[in-house]
């Protein structure tokens, strides 16, 4: 099934329990939509490309700044001022020429984004604000696509996988008081903490896409970089959720037509 070169390249995957050539093929055939190519996005995109994920949509309209370099390891001093998604594609292609990358550097290009979402079985949210997380969650619910969301600030990293396909909870179910959430601007960020959050996303994404293990949908994984403790909380479906109780999924919509 895998050719000789692929067999050597992914030999350490193939040695894993539960992992076989079929699992590797599933990664090679997988398509993922990634929102944000900053601290989280650099981690997730690198891990997925290196592991052999076949197709990635990189959505980010930001340009690289000097303050990004301590934690956004795909970028170098020479890249300052350039578009993150495009520089990331160049670096990632050098690492994995078999992967197809699509860059969207304009958030208003909704047509391009939605066209990819209909053919992508997984959304990964690597953005940096509560507002964008809520909007991406609404997209995942509308398109009925699983979502892996993570965040990091100060010494805290969190990551959760949501699955609207099985009518599980969504990111908005806890009804957080969003106006008060903390971003890296207010709290700073320690680079290993955001790397851990991104690698938790990569862990869940690669396990899910390869078919070896589903994430625990709705489990909020919480890492504290000050004591290295990892804790787990459970998010439940909220019947009064401002998002998933209100939005009709595209599938439901199709049935009602």
């Amino acid at each position: 099934m895998l050719n000789a070169s692929e067999y050597s390249r992914y030999s350490r995957h193939l040695l894993l329990d539960d992992f076989d050539e079929h699992a590797q093929r599933r990664l090679n055939n997988a398509k993922v939509t990634l929102f944000g190519v900053g601290g989280l996005g650099c981690q997730v995109a690198s891990a997925l490309a290196a592991a052999g994920v076949g197709e990635m949509v990189l959505i980010d309209d930001d340009t690289i700044e000097i303050s990004n370099l301590p934690r956004q390891w795909l970028f170098t001093e020479k890249d300052i001022g350039q578009k993150k998604a495009e520089v990331a594609r160049t670096r990632l292609l050098a690492m994995q020429s078999a992967c197809t990358f699509h860059c969207i550097t304009n958030f208003n290009d909704i047509a391009a984004r939605d066209a990819h979402l209909t053919t992508s079985p997984l959304i990964i949210d690597c953005t940096d604000s509560f507002t964008s997380r809520l909007a991406i969650n609404a997209l995942a619910v509308t398109h009925s696509v699983p979502l892996i969301s993570a965040a990091a600030s100060g010494f805290i990293a969190t990551a959760t996988a949501f699955n609207p396909e099985i009518s599980g909870p969504c990111y908005a179910c806890p009804e957080y008081n969003s106006e008060q959430s903390l971003t890296c601007f207010e709290q700073g960020i320690f680079s290993p903490v955001v790397a851990i959050a991104g690698q938790l996303q990569a862990m869940m994404a690669l396990s899910y896409l390869s078919g070896i293990r589903n994430p625990e949908w709705g489990s909020l994984h919480h890492f504290n970089g000050q004591n290295l403790l990892m804790r787990q909380f459970n998010i439940q479906k909220n019947p009064d959720c401002p998002t998933c109780s209100k939005i009709h999924r595209s599938e439901d919509h199709a049935h009602s037509l």
Binding site: Y176, S181, L220, N234
Partner: peptide, 17 residues
């Protein structure tokens, strides 16, 4: 405490409402 709070009882997050 600053910022939006997440509150869990027995490891289950309780919606703000």
């Amino acid at each position: 405490q600053e910022g939006a709070l997440a509150v869990a009882v027995n490891q289950t997050i309780i919606p703000t409402s």
